[in-house]
Amino acid sequence: MAEIWRLTSGEICALLGDVSERTWFRMKKGEWTGSLSQDSLTRVSALIGLFKGLRLLFSEPLADEWVKLANKGPLFEGRRPIDVMIEGGIPKLLLVRRHIDALRGGL
């Protein structure tokens, strides 16, 4: 998802919560043998659900770009969903995921 959404290492680390950039690079290389915290697992679960929901709701170009596009909806107030999720942590990650699920009729 990080590659598809074209996230920077700083953005992905912020989304994952307690993952440093050094750890992220080791994860990408397959050299990390640690385990994610419950906090990070919750974040990953929300992001995977969001990714899947976007793919079900929109065609691929829009689904892949949506998190980086400014959104005028009340949840985002002209901001990019990625920024809202980074700043809002788990509560906003889950809220954005529920927003997409609701748009596609999943709630």
Rank of each mutant, 00 (worst) to 15 (best):
G78S: 10
N71A: 07
W24K: 00
R80P: 02
Q38T: 11
G10E: 09
L54N: 00
A63L: 10
G106C: 09
T8V: 10
F25V: 00
C13A: 10
K68G: 11
H99F: 13
F25C: 01
K52P: 01
G105V: 11
S59T: 14
G17F: 01
I12A: 01
K52M: 09
S59I: 10
M1A: 13
G10Y: 05
M1E: 09
F58V: 05
K29T: 11
I82S: 03
C13H: 00
E77L: 14
L103M: 12
L16T: 02
R97P: 00
D101I: 06
P81R: 05
A14F: 03
Q38V: 09
E3I: 11
V67H: 02
S59A: 15
L69S: 11
D39G: 07
I82E: 02
M85G: 03
I4W: 13
G105L: 11
V44D: 00
G105W: 11
A63Y: 08
G106F: 10
F76G: 04
E65W: 06
A63G: 11
K72D: 15
R55Y: 08
R80N: 03
A102C: 08
L62D: 14
S37P: 07
A2H: 05
L36D: 00
G34C: 07
E21G: 06
E11S: 07
P91S: 05
L95W: 07
R80I: 04
L103N: 03
K52F: 09
G89R: 06
G53L: 05
N71E: 07
W5Q: 03
F25L: 04
F51P: 00
H99P: 02
H99Q: 08
L41G: 03
D83A: 11
S37A: 09
R6V: 10
K92M: 13
D101Q: 15
S20H: 08
W66E: 06
D18I: 02
I48M: 13
S20A: 10
G53Y: 02
L107I: 08
S45H: 13
L103Y: 03
P74K: 12
L50C: 07
R43T: 01
P74V: 12
S37I: 08
V19K: 00
V84K: 09
L54P: 00
T23V: 13
F76D: 07
G17L: 00
I4V: 15
R104K: 14
R26S: 04
L75Y: 05
A70G: 10
G17Q: 03
W66C: 06
T42Y: 02
L62I: 13
G106N: 11
L50Y: 06
R22C: 06
W66R: 06
V19W: 00
G105I: 11
V96D: 01
L15A: 01
K68M: 12
M27W: 15
E60L: 15
T23G: 04
F25P: 00
V67C: 05
Q38D: 12
C13I: 01
C13Q: 00
G88Q: 08
E77K: 14
A102L: 10
K52V: 14
S20V: 06
